[in-house]
């Protein structure tokens, strides 16, 4: 078992390295570099940049060196925790990202919990009562939910919240806590703001998850072990919750790792609309501005979080699936 965990850990490190290369290459792919974009922006606002000045900027950031040199300089500093300067913001990347990473994780987890809380019971119900009226209604609502873009939903809710209740739904904090340092009051303020954006983000995955849970469970419900449990005299709800639902939930453990990037990339537009302080909008801006240290850091961090998530789901699977555990003994 220890060998297995070490092996997984080793693979995780290799994967993280690969992600760092890929994320660095990807942000280098668009034509031009940060200085070009900077010059274009300045030109658009009427001022020009002299060629020597541009050259000086390039040298300062190492943009004139070959790409592997740039990568090496970047990654060796990253290894020591220095993610470089954001060119656009003129501040260290760490500072720019700041709390956003943790807020992203908090809001993503809230969204995932809500998704599961809604989708799993409905999926179970839909499978157990397949083709019932309620199953059709859930399916219909689910597909509508799947088809409506999240940001539209966010806009509608904001509109009605403002119109009917005079609420300003955007953001995660009230005005007085916006830039205040962390305190119990600020956390509480965030908790109060969290449910609605989390809910809106959650609805995207809900319809899909209902379908997956329903399909998984329908497969399991036809297995002989369900009939065996029934023939033992177990009440129907215990038959279903203890055996097929248990089996149908198993695949979900393996998806935990992918949930975070899924929510983050799926939530960029919603985050913009709701002005949520997550990394999504920041990533978008940094990509547009070719702020490569910032974009690279965000992509890298998301990648690392995914790898950690996958590693965790491997451990969870090992914990909940006796077949995997037994495979490791022999």
């Amino acid at each position: 078992m220890v060998t297995y965990i070490l092996q997984r850990l080793g693979l995780a490190l290799v994967t993280i390295w690969a992600i760092s290369v890929v994320s660095f290459v990807i942000i280098q792919l668009p034509p031009g570099d940060f200085v070009d974009t900077y010059i274009t922006n300045l030109a658009a606002s009427g001022s020009a940049v002299r060629a020597e000045e541009a050259q000086a900027l390039r040298e300062q950031y190492g943009l004139d060196k070959p790409i592997w040199v740039q990568y090496w300089k970047w990654i060796s500093r990253v290894a020591t925790g220095d993610f470089g300067m954001s060119m656009e913001w003129g501040r260290p990347v760490i500072e720019v990202i700041g709390d956003r990473l943790w807020l992203t994780i908090v809001i993503s987890f809230a969204a995932i919990l809500i998704t599961w809380g809604i989708a799993l019971p409905i999926g179970i119900y839909s499978a157990v009562r397949q083709y019932s009226v309620a199953d059709y209604i859930f399916t219909f609502v689910g597909f509508v939910g799947l088809a409506v873009p999240n940001f539209l939903l966010a806009l509608i809710i904001m509109y009605f919240g403002f119109k009917l209740f005079d609420l300003n739904i955007g953001g995660l904090f009230s005005a007085e806590y916006q830039i205040a340092p962390w305190s119990a009051g600020k956390v509480w303020d965030m908790m109060k703001h969290l449910p609605l954006p989390a809910m809106i983000l959650a609805l995207a995955g809900t319809a899909q998850l209902i379908r997956i849970m329903r399909a998984n469970l329908l497969d399991e419900l036809r297995r002989p072990y369900v009939t065996t449990a029934r023939a033992r005299g177990l009440p129907e709800w215990r038959v279903i919750l203890k055996y097929p639902v248990r089996a149908a939930l198993n695949p979900f453990a393996s998806t935990i790792g992918y949930l975070l990037p899924f929510v983050v990339s799926g939530s960029i537009v919603v985050s913009l609309v709701l002005s949520l302080p997550t990394v999504g909008p920041l990533l978008l801006r940094s990509l547009v501005a070719q702020d490569m240290f910032l974009a690279g850091t965000i992509v890298l961090l998301l990648g690392i979080l995914t790898v950690i998530g996958t590693f965790l789901s491997d451990l969870i699977l090992m914990w909940i699936d006796p077949r995997i555990r037994s495979g490791m003994h022999g």
């Binding site: 065996t228 023939a231 033992r232 005299g233 198993n250 077949r323």
Partner: peptide
């Protein structure tokens, strides 16, 4: 699904199924 019927299942009448491979839950001892 009545209690009386459930008491008959297993309690009065035991049932052995055809497929021992899939008639037991793999997730429970």
């Amino acid at each position: 699904s009545s209690r009386e019927m459930r008491e008959v299942r297993g309690g009065e009448i035991g049932y052995v199924f055809q497929e021992p491979m899939s008639s037991l839950s793999a997730y429970h001892t």
